[in-house]
Simulated scan of single mutants.
Amino acid sequence: MGELEEVVEATGADLETAIRKGLAILEVGRDDVQIEVLEESSRGVFGIGARDARVRLTLKPQPQVVALPAEAVAVEPLPEEDLEPLEPEDDEEAETARAVLLELLEYMGVENARVEARRAEADGDDEGPAPLLLEVTAPKDDLVGPQGETLDALQRITRLIVGREQESWTQLLVDVNGYRLRRRQSLQKLALRLAKQAVDTGRTVVLEPMPPDERRIVHLALRDHPDVSTESIGEGARRKVTIIPR
C-alpha cells in the first residue's frame, strides 16, 4: 500500500463487517482507530429498503519512536559542583571499591590507569548515602565499548565484588574518561528536545530501550516539565521511556 490514509469509510452487511473492512484497508488494529457509525444496517421489508452499515475509521495519532544516539555527543563536562571530592581513607566503602576496580583493570591488562573515588550528588527524593562514583582515567576508551556495554559489565562486576566484601549492596557507578558525564548531559539535552517535539506535534514520543540508569536520567530531566509527563513501558531489556504531552 502507498502512503497510509488517515480516514476511510467502509460498508458491510452489518457494523462488524464494515469495521473489519475499514481496518483491512488501513492495515491497523481496532485500538489504532476511532470508529464513527454513519449508518446502521437494515434488512428492510421483504428485502425492500435494505441497506448496508456504513462506518468512518480515523487513525489515532501514532507514537513517534526515536532512536537514541549510539554514543554520547561531545559536550562540555558537567559542573564540578555535581560531585564532591572524597578522601578514600575517610570512607571504607570507597577505599574497598577503588582497590577492587584497580585490581580488575590490572587483570584486564589496562596499564597506567588511575581511579578516583567521589560521591555523586544524590537526588532530592533519594534516601541514604549518595552513589559512589569511581572515575577511571585510562589511555584509551576501549573500556567503554559499543553504547557503553563494556563499561556496564565492568560496573556490574565491581559492584558484585564490593558488595560481597562489604556484605551489603553498594550503590556504585564506574565511569571511564568522563563517558558517563558526557552521556548524561547528552541524554538531558535529548529529553528536552523530544519534550518540545511531543508538545509541538501533540503526539507521544517513544524512545528506544535503555538501561535503568539512562531511563532515570530522562525521567529526572523532565520531572518538573510543565507540558509533558514521562512513563516507562515494556519489560526487562525492552523497557523504554515515553514522553507524553499533557
Rank of each mutant, 00 (worst) to 15 (best):
P63S: 10
K140Q: 10
A198R: 15
A191G: 14
G12W: 03
R114I: 08
G124E: 13
H219D: 14
E76G: 02
Q188Y: 01
V73N: 11
V100W: 02
V75F: 06
A97M: 04
L15A: 11
Q166N: 00
T150D: 03
A237K: 09
E39Y: 07
E81R: 10
G178E: 05
D227F: 15
L57S: 11
V136E: 00
V75L: 09
G47E: 03
L173K: 03
V73M: 10
K140N: 09
L68H: 01
G234R: 12
Q197K: 14
G145T: 06
E39D: 13
E116T: 06
H225N: 15
A237R: 11
R215V: 12
K140L: 10
L190T: 06
L133D: 04
R51S: 10
V8P: 12
M1Q: 14
L222R: 14
W169M: 00
L102E: 12
V136N: 07
D126Q: 13
G47L: 05
L59R: 15
I243P: 10
D32Q: 13
T204N: 09
T242Q: 15
R216K: 14
G128D: 05
R184F: 02
L154R: 02
V144P: 03
T158G: 03
V144I: 15
I157S: 06
E39H: 08
S186Y: 02
A153Y: 02
R184T: 07
L104D: 02
L132E: 01
V115M: 03
R193S: 14
P131T: 05
R118Q: 14
P211F: 00
L143T: 09
P226D: 14
E5H: 13
G202P: 13
V241C: 05
E5L: 15
A97E: 02
L172R: 01
E84H: 03
E165F: 06
D126S: 12
H225V: 14
K21P: 03
E80M: 11
E106Q: 08
G44C: 05
P88C: 06
D52A: 13
P77F: 01
L173F: 10
D152W: 00
A50I: 08
Q34F: 04
R98T: 13
R118C: 14
V144C: 06
R118Y: 12
L83H: 00
D227K: 15
A13E: 08
S41G: 15
R184K: 09
L26A: 12
L102C: 08
L151M: 05
A18H: 02
L194Y: 04
A97T: 05
M210R: 03
V205H: 03
V115P: 10
P226T: 13
R203Q: 15
L134F: 02
E93T: 12
L57T: 10
A67L: 11
L104Y: 06
A117C: 07
T158Y: 01
V199R: 07
L23S: 12
A24I: 06
N112I: 02
P85D: 07
A24C: 07
G236Y: 08
L15C: 07
P146F: 00
R239F: 08
R30C: 07
